[in-house]
Design a protein around this nucleic acid. Structure first.
Lengths: 203, 203
DNA sequence: GTCATTATATACCGCCCGTTATGGAAAGCA
DNA sequence: TGCTTTCCATAACGGGCGGTATATAATGAC
C-alpha cells in the first residue's frame, strides 16, 4: 500500500518517510482534534520542519484529510468487517465492541478523531466538519441497507425502522467515544455495550 | 432569582445588565464551544468592552463556569424533572424527548454546550473539561439511584444493571446532541428516540 | 467643591497561530 | 564543472488570541 507511485529521480532526496510522518500526524489530530492540533505540535511529532510539511502535504487542512483517510482505512476497518457479519445482532455487536477496542485502546488517544474535530470547529474548519459528516452519512447508509437486508432475511423483525435503528446504533457508538474521551474505563464501556446488546431487538 | 445581592452605592453605576450579558455569553459558548468562542465574539454579543467583562466576570474561564451554571439551571432543568417521573421508562422518555427539545430547538444552537466545550479542548481548558465531567458524573449518579429505586419498586426488571442502563441512556442522549449538532432534523431525532424507547426494558 | 470609588473607552502587551520568503545543501544531468 | 531541480533550515510575516495599563467619566460621601 505505497502511496508514492514514482519516486522523483531529480533533485535532493526527501529525508523522511511520508507514510510514517502521516501516521504521526494522525496521532496528533486524533489526540487534539483539528483545531487543537497546532502546526508546531504536528511538525514536532512528525520530526520535520514546516516547509517540508507544506511541500509534502499542501497545508494543514490537506494533511488532515489525508490523516482522516488513514484513520478510516486503519482504525475504522472494523466498520466494514461488521457489515459482513451474518446477522443484524452480530453486526451491531461487531460495531460496538470494535468501537470500544479502537476508541479506548491503551497507548492510543481515547475518543473519535472525526467527532473531536467536527463537533466544535472554527469557521475556517467548516470544510473539516462537512467532510466528517459526509463520511459518516456514507457509513450510515451502508448500515441502513444492511438492516434492510436483515429484515428480508428474517433475522430482524419486520416492524423495525432500519433508519431509526441505524441512528440508534450510531448514537450508542458516539456515546462510547464520548465517554471514552471523558475517561471511562474499558469495563464501564463494556457494561454499556452489554446493556445495549441485551436490549437489541430479536426475532 | 437576582444574582446581585446588594447594589454598590458608591462609584459610577454599571451601564449593562449582568444577567442579560451572561445570557448572551451563554449563547456564544453554546454555539462555538469554549475554545471556539473568542473574547471578541463574547464582548460583541454581550455589548460590552473587555475591561467591563473582566471587571464583572473575572476572566474567560470564570465567565464560562457562570454560563454553564445558567445553562444547567435553565436548559437542563428537564433532567431534574425527569427524575420525578413515576416509572423508569417515563424517566427515560422525559430525558430523551427533553434532550431533543433543548438540543435541536429552533433559534438556539444545536448540540450540547458542555459536550462541545469538553470533547476537544486546549491544554489551558482542561479545567473546563474537568468541570463538565464532574457535573455529568453527578447527574449520572442521580440517574443510577433513580433506576435502583425503579428496580425496588418493580417497574424495572431485577436483572437490569442500573449503571449500565444509565451509561446506555446517557450514550443515546450524547448521540442525540452529536447528531443534532451535525444537522439532523427533528424528525430524524424523534425516530431515534422512538426506536430507543421501543427497546427500553419492560417488566 | 473635593475626594474616593467604580465603570467605561482606547490602545496596547506578549504570545502563538498558519503560512511563506530566503538562502543554502544534496542529488541527477550535461 | 556548472546547471537544474528538489529539499532542508532559519527566520520572518500579518493576524488573532487572552488579558491589561492608562486615562477619563460618572456616581455617593463629606
Amino acid at each position: 500500500m505505497e502511496s508514492t507511485i514514482a519516486p522523483p529521480v531529480k533533485g535532493r532526496p526527501r529525508e523522511f518517510c511520508v507514510d510514517k510522518a502521516l501516521a504521526e500526524a494522525l496521532h496528533v489530530f486524533w489526540a487534539k482534534g483539528y483545531d487543537g492540533a497546532s502546526m508546531t505540535d504536528l511538525t514536532e511529532a512528525m520530526g520535520i520542519t514546516k516547509p517540508s510539511l507544506y511541500a509534502a502535504f499542501g497545508n494543514k487542512e490537506a494533511l488532515f484529510h489525508k490523516a482522516l483517510d488513514l484513520y478510516e482505512a486503519e482504525k475504522l476497518e472494523y466498520t466494514r468487517a461488521a457489515l459482513q457479519q451474518p446477522t443484524a445482532r452480530k453486526v451491531a455487536e461487531y460495531y460496538l465492541r470494535g468501537g470500544v477496542d479502537v476508541h479506548a485502546a491503551e497507548g492510543e488517544p481515547h475518543g473519535c478523531m472525526g467527532l473531536m474535530s467536527s463537533l466544535a470547529c472554527s469557521p475556517e474548519a467548516e470544510s473539516i466538519k462537512a467532510d466528517v459528516i459526509r463520511r459518516r452519512a456514507s457509513s450510515q447508509r451502508a448500515l441502513v441497507e444492511r438492516f434492510e437486508q436483515a429484515k428480508r432475511e428474517g433475522d430482524l423483525p419486520a416492524h423495525i425502522d432500519a433508519e431509526g435503528l441505524t441512528s440508534f446504533l450510531y448514537a450508542i457508538l458516539q456515546g462510547i467515544t464520548v465517554q471514552a474521551g471523558a475517561g471511562a474505563t474499558r469495563a464501564e464501556l463494556e457494561r454499556l455495550v452489554d446493556t445495549s446488546l441485551a436490549l437489541w431487538p430479536s426475532k
